[in-house]
Simulated assay, not measured.
Amino acid sequence: MNTDDAVIPAVGYIYVAPPDTLMPPLASIIDPATPDGWGSGQWDSIGNTSLDNGISHAVDGDDPETKGSWQKPNLRLTNPKKTYSLDIKLEDFTVESYRLYYGSSRSADPDGTFVIPESPVAQARALLIIAVDADHMVAEYYPRVTIIGNGAIEYDPANLTEIPVRATVLTGNTADTAYPGKITPRIPIPKPVTPPAPSAPPDVRVWGSGPTYWCAWAPPTTGGSPDGYTLYAYPAASRGDPNSYTRIDVASLIDSDDHPDPPSDLASGWICPSEAISFPDSGDWGLAVTAHNTGGTSTHALTDTSEHITVPA
């Protein structure tokens, strides 16, 4: 019996995004308290939720039934469909909380008030829950849920007021999200990868012209296949100084053979961001990349560009 698999969720974080937003790579969840660095830029915290009541998971559906024949009374057991839901007690009185509770997609009026709709409509979201147990976590991801109020709001002078909502789990609507959800076992929270000074031959390419720049890098030849990569920009004058690196968010990665605008001499099998990248400012810049596994350990020496690129003002 492995006692390390038990979970005490002392702290938790809940995020929502447009429905069918992909789950962030686990290796990018270095700090569960913030979605910075997750790549898509679409995840937003739902805010404070109840400490006393936590999150309740529910399953609704018929019980299995035994079906039999005259010869075999226990011939088959049915597998009725189930509906999953999560009850969450919000504690932030924000427009987003009102949208989810009252069932409306509208914004606040110019005077700051929120109009309660006559006909509520459950709001569709992607949902991500991260339960933190010391330096470990359990992550739950649901590509599409519908959220609506579930119970009364009670103003209790002795406690934080709660806004109860229920998220009903649906199946995602895209080829990449065609399932109800995902959940991890208790896994270590990835550790941040601090970029060291370049120690490997330069093998990161960057090309393009402002404001559209592309890049690609060679996959590691040792250490196995990494779970993720972290891309950095650095001023040309500060090459090798870890304090000068600025992380660049990357939504998704593709093979260089599938790149929409590759240079003619780009090697096959290299790794590329699927979208153009942006540098932090004008000036002379280089790019660097690290590869890491789920635990955040570097598996590939930092590499960088052999030639820097000048970003116009």
Rank of each mutant, 00 (worst) to 15 (best):
P263L: 08
P211S: 13
L253S: 12
I254F: 01
P195M: 06
D255Y: 10
D227E: 03
I248N: 09
T222R: 06
P260F: 09
A236L: 12
P211R: 14
K191H: 05
D261K: 09
P192T: 03
Y229Q: 04
L231V: 05
V204Y: 05
W217D: 06
P242K: 04
P262T: 01
W217H: 03
T222G: 04
A251E: 15
I254E: 08
R247I: 10
V193H: 01
I254L: 10
G228Y: 14
A237G: 14
P190Q: 08
K191P: 05
W207I: 07
P220G: 15
Y229S: 01
R247G: 04
P260E: 15
P263W: 08
P260Q: 14
P220F: 04
P198M: 02
D261G: 04
Y232R: 00
D203K: 12
H259C: 11
P242C: 10
R247Q: 14
A251R: 08
D258L: 11
S225V: 11
P201Y: 12
T246P: 00
P219A: 05
I254Q: 03
A218L: 06
G223Q: 01
P219Y: 06
R247P: 01
S264L: 13
Y229T: 03
S244Q: 14
K191F: 04
G223C: 02
A216C: 14
T222I: 15
T222D: 09
Y232S: 00
A233G: 02
P196Y: 00
I248A: 12
R205D: 09
K191I: 07
A251P: 07
V206L: 03
S256M: 10
P263D: 08
R247H: 07
D241F: 09
T230D: 08
T212N: 12
V204C: 10
P196F: 00
G240P: 05
G224L: 10
